[in-house]
Design a protein around this nucleic acid. Structure first.
Length: 205
DNA sequence: GTGCCGATGTAG
DNA sequence: TACATCGGCACG
């Protein structure tokens, strides 16, 4: 089984490729983390939901930092969101299967249930202890490591109002650790007939 | 199970 | 003012 560090070259690829590749990889931050099962992608150009569309400071940050840099920000005044810069895009790490430092994460979350530890970007940020102090840090030094093969499902992004129809929320198929399971619009990337796939999926519900 | 709602910081 | 969210509470 391959287990190598995800270096600068890994993140310096088209951001959608990086997003898909991250599923099944490992994230370990100061002893806490696990297997990544959900990642959302935002395009630096032409994506109304991306911070770069409305924030000059965000565009500047993207321009001044290389792929593999942490983009951490506070949302709703409460939740720290972990993102990683990639080529032409920013990737939100939304959920992972807890594997490392579980007692510490349980303490930070004040939550015993493993399913509730990292199943959402806010929970993940709290469990791993990310804060604004980590904004701008380099994550290519062993934080991310490759994992085994993963079957990918793509669905619409959630929690946003602008450009929400883009199928840029990537998950591991069948994973019980995601924030929200794939819905009727979910597709397997690379499937030519996504519409019929979505129809048959919704019909099985 | 569903749905509403308040918390709380900050960029624009 | 609008958020890339979450947990608690009401309901039944």
């Amino acid at each position: 089984m391959p287990d190598f560090n995800l270096n600068r070259e890994f993140f310096d690829r088209p951001f959608l490729d990086v997003a898909r590749s991250l599923i099944g990889c490992t994230l370990c931050w100061q002893g806490c983390g696990g297997r990544i099962v959900e990642v959302e992608a935002y395009a630096v150009e032409g994506d109304a939901a991306c911070h770069t569309a409305t924030r000059r400071s965000s565009r500047l940050f993207y321009q001044e930092n290389p792929p593999g840099t942490a983009y951490v920000y506070l949302n709703y005044g409460i939740h720290w969101m972990l993102n990683v810069l990639a080529r032409e895009g920013i990737l939100l790490i939304r959920a992972l299967e807890p594997q490392f430092g579980i007692p510490i994460m349980q303490a930070r979350r004040r939550q015993e249930n493993l399913r509730a530890l990292c199943s959402g970007p806010g929970k993940l940020g709290q469990a791993l202890g990310f804060t604004g102090m980590d904004h701008g840090k380099d994550l290519t030094g062993g934080v991310f490591r490759s994992g085994g093969a993963a079957e990918i499902v793509a669905d619409r992004r959630i929690g946003i109002t602008k450009a929400a129809e883009l199928p840029w929320r990537f998950m591991e198929a069948g994973s019980p650790w995601v924030s929200v399971p794939p819905g009727p619009f979910a597709v397997r990337p690379g499937n030519a007939d996504s519409a019929s796939e979505a129809t048959s999926r919704s019909g099985q519900r």
